[in-house]
Amino acid sequence: MSSIGLIDPRDPALAGEPAVVLATLVAATGSTSKKVGAKMIVAQSGRLLGGVTIGGCVDAQVIEAADALVARGGRRLLSISLDDDEAWEIGLTCGGTVEVMLERVEANRGDDVVASAHGFAGDALARGAAAVLVTPVDGAPAAFVVCDDGAHFGSLGAAAIDDAATGLVAGVLASSSRVETIGDRRYFFDRIAPPTTLVIVGAGQIAMSLTRMARELEMRTIVVDGRERYATRERFPDADELCVGMPSEIVANIPSTKRVAVALVAHDYKYELPILRRLLREPVGYIGMLGSKKRGVAMRDILRDEGFTDDELARVHTPIGLDIGGRSAAEVALSILAEIVAVRSGKRA
């Protein structure tokens, strides 16, 4: 299973597994410890694949149900009510209900509807697109994938249902996975988006800490600098890409999407100004710049004189990072990542 919950037939963990049950948390009331869309795989061999679990007592019931399903086939919706004691154990403070969709999947069978849809969504991710995978929460299996680049795959059984689902996809892409009702049937809209790409400009100590911590957050990191002796693999073993050249050109060649965050940590206007000129009118999700408030004001003044508006300039988070009182490179990196997550989740503008 990929890190974001897609079944990949090429995954070595699936080798020798003729069938698995994919368990997906599709709905929850109360304050769940896992968000809707969390997944777990229960293999025919009894193995649990992937690192995503749904939580304490729920896991046990899901595994028990999955064991039965993997042998006889089919799919079911498991609705689990939580009394107060159970709720306390898994972090639900006032009880609630979770709904878990269980689907038997034969990952290596080309005609498996769910496996094929996961493969298509995986290909979309690989080319940088986001996708929504729509499946009925119970009943006969079906899958329909709609990507934000216009590609689509599969069907929910009727063109009218596919059209209705397509009409709901934009809203899901803009927010999060959820169940929607079309006609008299409920469907799970699973938002599958590429990981955040963190572009780090300036290959110093803060950047080194950023790449290490960003890996834990499953972000893809690109380290950019004009200095070959700084942006080295020895200094950045965790970076996904190291780019040396004219930083503003390198950044301009990275496709701008809301899933791109740019951290300017060179503390050098010669990189920051050209990059900001290119980025302020691009739809990147986050721009942060290292420096004091005074420095931020000076940079904004220069850019304002060049014609950038106050709204455009307000997109730059500077001083960068949440104010957690950190001073070391690692602490600053932590505050930057916290701010990126806060912006991504809508907790901070």
Binding site: D225, G226, R227, E228, R229, A266, K270
Partner: peptide, 13 residues
């Protein structure tokens, strides 16, 4: 033609 000062990181074309 591109030029660079490798230590300070100035880059020009």
């Amino acid at each position: 033609i591109d030029g660079a000062n490798p230590l300070c990181g100035d880059r020009i074309r």
